[in-house]
Nucleic acid binder design. Structure first.
Lengths: 114, 114
DNA sequence: TGAATATATGAACAAATGAACATATATCAA
DNA sequence: TTGATATATGTTCATTTGTTCATATATTCA
């Protein structure tokens, strides 16, 4: 990085906004759930200990941040992770806390069929 | 991931707390600065548009999160990124916004001597 | 020791945020 | 159409968060 090419303010705001989305345990739980498989809002409400309203509000944020995509299926709306990039970020978070906890291997690391 | 092995609440809180630290542009700016080289608090204050107090408060948070380390040198305190892991996270953030902006290559991507 | 410099910290305050509650919209079935 | 189900959204409220201002602590130098 060149000292003379310090990025414009906006870059930092965008990055912060990106990470901010991952900075809430409800949203992390939703994303983690969607990693295993796509799910309807109702399923998420069941699995997670949250009201339908709370889930829906958070899903809107995740949509606006392009972290999840969705399709309608009858009355239900099925959500899924937008792409592998989202998963990569989650994985890094898990690695970090595993590292901090002094374990090399984390049993909850979201590997396929783990 | 096995549906029956849904991680304990704590994992999600820890992950959220981890990402929360990256969810503020001031802290991102500090971390980004420290990527290029270690810096004293005073240098950070100069480069970034923040008061000494604000920088110091944020540095404390970064310390508590183990994202930066420091050493004293006379009256000055020199901060640096704690490890490459921190850098990897920053890099992912940059990649994400570069992706969102539709560019394949981001000129601000923090590669060594970029 | 006392002054100057560098950094840290406590308190107060405004802004942002997440949840709950109520209600709106959409889809299906009868 | 009416009722039932699934999801979304608007509003309010309590909490959290980041900054500022004032002050404290440390270190160097004279």
């Amino acid at each position: 990085m060149n000292k003379n090419s310090f990025p414009p303010e906006e870059i930092f705001y965008d990055m912060a906004d990106f990470f901010k989305v991952f900075g809430d345990s409800s949203r992390i739980k939703i994303l983690y759930s969607l990693y295993s498989k796509e799910m309807s809002v109702g399923e998420l409400v069941e699995i997670l200990d949250m009201t339908q309203s709370a889930v829906s509000h958070q899903l809107r944020l995740l949509r606006q941040s392009d972290l999840v995509k969705f399709r309608k299926e009858g009355k239900a709306v099925i959500y899924s992770l937008d792409d592998d990039h989202v998963f990569a970020v989650l994985e890094q978070g898990l690695k970090h806390i595993a590292h901090k906890n002094g374990r090399e291997e984390n049993e909850y690391e979201p590997k396929a069929d783990a």
